[in-house]
Structure formats: C-alpha cells, structure tokens
Design a protein around this nucleic acid. Structure first.
Length: 508
RNA sequence: GGCCCCAUCGUCUAGUCUGGCCUAGGACGCUAGGUUUUCAUCCUAGUAACAGGGGUUCGAAUCCCCUUGGGGUCACCA
C-alpha cells in the first residue's frame, strides 16, 4: 500500500493569490489536472504567498472557487477551510522555517554566500551593461569574501542578500516533455542570482524548488513563461543535491495581438466568463484544445474523454490566440445539447438578477412586473423556446423579458409586415384573437394548425404571422408565434393582441 | 540587446516524429443558397494557409542548414 502510493506521480498547481483567477491560470491548472487524472496521480494545490504585500485571502478563495466551478479536483494541499496531506503546510507564508533550514545549509556548504552590494551599486552595474549592450551579469564582488569577513559584516548590521554560487561554465540541460531537449549555459543566467533575503527569507525560485522537493513533486507542468526559471531551479537543485523533477512547459495563451494574454486584453478573469454565461464544460473543452488536441476532426469532447486521450506528445509547441468567437460557438453547442431542466436551473439566477422574477419557494417564483406567480415548469417552457437560440446564458433575460413584464415597449410600426397597412394589420390581429378564443385543446399542435390555416388565407404567411409575433413579443426577432402563444396561454395572448390593435389605431 | 522557444487558412488546428495516399482536411469567422413568419438552429456551397531561400531525395508541409518573422524572459516579484 505504502509502496504503491510512493509510485504515484505527484503534480502541483501553485498559483500566487495576487489577482483574480484568470484564463492563463486555469489552463495551467487544467493541464496539471488532466495529467494527474490520466496517470491516477496526486494533484497538490500549493499557495505561493511569499509576497505578503500583494497576496490576499480573497484571491485564494477565488482560486479554489474557480477550480471547483470548472470541475477540477485536487487531492492534497489547501482546501476551503483546511489543509490535507503529509507535506504541509501548503502555504509558502507558513513554511519560513523550512526555507531557512535549506538556506542555512546552502551557506554552510558554501553553495551560497552573503552579498552586501547595495541596490544602488547593482543598479549602476546593470545600467552600465545595458549601455554597452552586453548581457547583464552580477559582477561577483562578494563571491569570494572570506567567511570571517562575511560574519563580521553581518554582525555589524550590514544589509545583505544570499546568492547562489553558480558553477562557472556548465551546460544546464533538461528534457522538456513538450519541447524536448532544452539547454542553457550557466554563464548566461545573469551571474550568481539571489535566492534569499535577510532573515533567510526565500525568493521565488528557491522556495519553489524546496517545496517541490519537500512535497515530492515528480512533474512540473507550467506555462512557457517559466522556461527561463527552469535552469535556475535546476542549478539550485544541483547545489542542494536533490532530484530534478520532470518538466513540461505549456505554450502560452495569446491575446489578439499575439502577446501573452493579460489584463489589458480585456476580460480574462474567469469569474467574468462565468457571469457572461459560459459553461464550465465549454470552457474546459475549449481551453484544453488551445495547445492540445487528440488528432482527427472531432472537437467536442467531454472532460472524461479529454483525460483519457491526454498526452504531452500531442501538445502544441507554439502559443495559441484566445479566440472568443470559437468559445462562444462551443458554448452554444453545449447549451443546445443540455438537459432543459438543468439549463433552466442555471438560467434562473440570471432572470432573478435582472429582476424579472424573484424566488418565493422551492420551484415557486414571482414576476413582480406582472404581479403574478410563476412556477419552475412555466419558466422551463419559456426557456425551451430559446434553448437553440442562446449562446450565452446572460442573453436570456433580454430575450425572454416579454414573458415577465406587463406592458411591452415597442414602436407600433414594427407590427406592419412589409407594405401592409395598419388597417389590414388590425384585421389580421383581430382574426388572431378570434382564433385563439376558439381553440379548445391548448396544445402546441392544435395552436399551430389553427394559425397556419389562418396564415395560408393570405398570399404570404408573414402578413398574418409577423404582426402576431411582434404583438406578443414586442421584438424584431424572437421565438415563433405558435410557441409563444402556447407558453403564454390564452389570457395573456389576447391581452397582448388587443394592446397591439390599440397602438395601431394611433399611427395611421 | 543577450539567452531560450516557436513557425500550416484571419483564428484554433489535422497532417510532421515514421517523406509519396496532400489537388493540404476539419472547426470558428465571413459570404452565398436552402429550410423558415422574424431570429436562431439545421443543411449545402464558397472564401482562405504549408514565411522565404538553399540543400538531401526519384519524390519534401514533412528531414537538414541559413534568413526572416513572432513570442517569452532577463528583479533583493511570483
């Protein structure tokens, strides 16, 4: 049992809670999740909150809520109100002692050293190399200070940082699961880089390496923007004499201008997509297919199928532009193919937030603008008229509002079909009223039959059907008149038709 | 600028590893047509790409080199 669990691969998703969860983070998380599921491994959620200034609890909650909303699960690390796992704590802010231990060890073994260079001095050096157009590199002023002097200067209270003593000219090579062999020369890492600050406070690359090691992470899957951190982390691992995990660097998600997707590309916060009415299934499908695909022509895959098919060898190496039109189209597909019951359930909150309805009880709602009760069943019927027209859930209130309000607000001229006169249109609407009044069996088929028979009396069905539909919905575009009448019921239908006739009398 | 990475329709991509079946396929978008009372759905058709140049080969989107282009990254942030 124990042995078996040690063989499991272990992955981590390690966001820093310094902003709202966005598409880029979602993608990194997703690929970790997919691979973990595929290999039946363990996914750890670690919070990288060493930056106390910028880290906020609300962002941490946002991360977890977003992951859950998308249907991604993790088995270890930070959860809503607890931590699970044997390698905690899982927040970097609580792991200070661990980093300190490793940092001290590095100093003792002379793998790292104290540096007393002032920021100003370093800044000047950097400007100098920039001016001469050569790659900036730490000059190494403090690299070979005698230990005694180091100790003395610390005792004297001089400010310092801790730098890694980088091997001179060594090739750092790693085998990226997506990119293949990638190599850097140690001399090109910018010199002995800083791994810790005063009081043995770790910097990102160091904390990351220590955590990955302590948490027994076997595979690091992250965005390509981390690829240049990898040789640094490997250098630290080598200095520490610890095992190097496998790496896979995902291609970046790009904005329309092909640069890394960021805030300036508009709404990237996942929450905004949720609000607009994108479904998690659609998002998962779409994001998976940015930089990966199972081959072949099918494009709609469930999460389970994606997990089953997932492999690094089918990952793209180049970045992918985030194409919102395609996402929207996939979203529409998922909506059309959803259970009506479920669709209605997730649409109701949108109706409520637009104040079209309020909740009274289980399955019972109230339409304040009509002063009428309305039950779930009726809302479901309304949604059924729009299921194949909806691309975003947020469109629903605007599309269906006419069912929930008393008086429609539209230009009476809209009632006129093409060249039709107001008088003729009034006649058509009156016919429609008598027809509706005469219907005995209130079902869609009967209503449809009756209306079509009436419509066929004209050269063109539109002469009759268009004004009826506009009278009911008040809109240029809507569901068809048969369906609307069927859902509205005779009373409201006749009320609407009469109102239309009245408004037509005014325009001639 | 140094370093690293990448390169098929406007976009996401199949095909590349293991050259020939590629007259380069699909999807989104757009255009036209059909169904239709409107809108949407659905169906049909069209639009549009192997970055350029050298090799290797009987044969290159596919292998090699160069050029060009794009991106990432260069902190006492993560």
């Amino acid at each position: 049992m124990n042995k078996k669990s040690e063989e499991k691969i272990r992955l981590r998703f390690a966001p820093s809670p310094t902003g709202s969860f966005h598409i880029g983070s979602a993608r990194a998380a997703l690929f970790n999740y997919l691979y973990a599921q595929k290999e039946k491994g363990v996914l750890v959620l670690r919070i990288e909150d060493t930056d106390r200034e910028r880290s906020k609890k609300i962002y941490e909650e946002d991360i977890m809520r977003s992951l859950s909303w998308l249907g991604m699960t993790w088995e270890e690390g930070v959860f809503e109100d607890e931590e699970r796992g044997d390698y905690g704590p899982y927040r970097q802010s609580e792991r200070g002692d661990i980093y300190k231990r490793y940092l001290m060890k590095m100093i003792e073994e002379e793998r790292a050293y104290y540096c007393f260079c002032s920021k100003e001095k370093l800044e000047k050096e950097r400007e100098e190399s920039e001016k001469n157009k050569i790659a900036h590199k730490y000059s190494g002023t403090c690299r070979n200070l005698p230990i005694k002097e180091q100790d003395k200067r610390i005792r004297d209270g001089e400010r310092y940082v801790i730098r890694l003593r980088l091997p001179e000219n060594e090739i750092i090579k790693f085998d990226d699961r997506i990119r293949g062999s990638v190599s850097f020369s140690s001399g090109e890492l910018g010199g002995d880089f800083v791994i810790g600050k005063e009081n043995f406070f770790p910097l990102y690359n160091f904390a990351c390496v220590v955590d990955d090691y302590e948490m027994k992470i076997t595979h690091v899957i992250r965005g390509e923007d981390h690829i240049s951190n990898t040789p640094k982390q490997i250098a630290i691992q080598q200095a520490l004499g610890i095992e190097i995990p496998e790496y896979a660097h995902l291609p970046l998600i790009l904005g329309n201008d092909k640069s890394k997707l960021s805030k300036r590309h508009g709404s990237v916060s996942l929450f905004e997509y949720k609000e607009k009415g994108y479904l998690p299934e659609a998002l998962i499908n779409f994001i998976s297919f940015l930089g990966w695909n199972p081959g072949g022509e099918r494009e709609i895959y469930s999460k389970e199928e994606i997990i089953e098919k997932f492999s690094f060898s089918r990952c793209q190496k180049s970045g992918a532009v985030f194409n919102i039109d395609k996402l929207t189209s996939i979203n529409g597909y998922y909506i059309r193919n959803m259970e009506l019951e479920k669709l209605t359930e997730i649409v109701v909150p949108y109706l409520i937030s637009e104040k079209l309805i309020t909740k009274k009880g289980e399955g019972e709602y109230y339409a304040p603008q009509r002063d009428e009760d309305i039950n779930f069943r009726k809302i479901k019927d309304i949604i059924s008229l729009y299921q194949e027209r909806i691309k975003l859930l947020s469109e629903v209130p605007l599309l269906t509002d006419y069912f929930f309000i008393k008086k429609l607000d539209y230009d009476p001229k809209l009632l006129l079909w093409k060249e039709a006169s107001p008088e003729d249109t009034i006649r058509q609407l009156q016919n429609c009223i008598s027809l509706v009044e005469s219907i005995k069996r209130w079902d869609l088929e009967t209503i449809k039959e009756g209306l079509i028979r009436e419509a066929d009396k004209n050269d063109n069905k539109g002469v009759f059907l268009w004004p009826a539909r506009v009278a009911l919905s008040g809109k240029k575009a809507s569901a068809g008149p048969f369906e609307i009448i069927w859902v509205m019921g005779p009373e409201m239908t006749i009320e609407r038709l009469r109102m239309a006739i009245e408004s037509l009398k005014g325009i001639k």
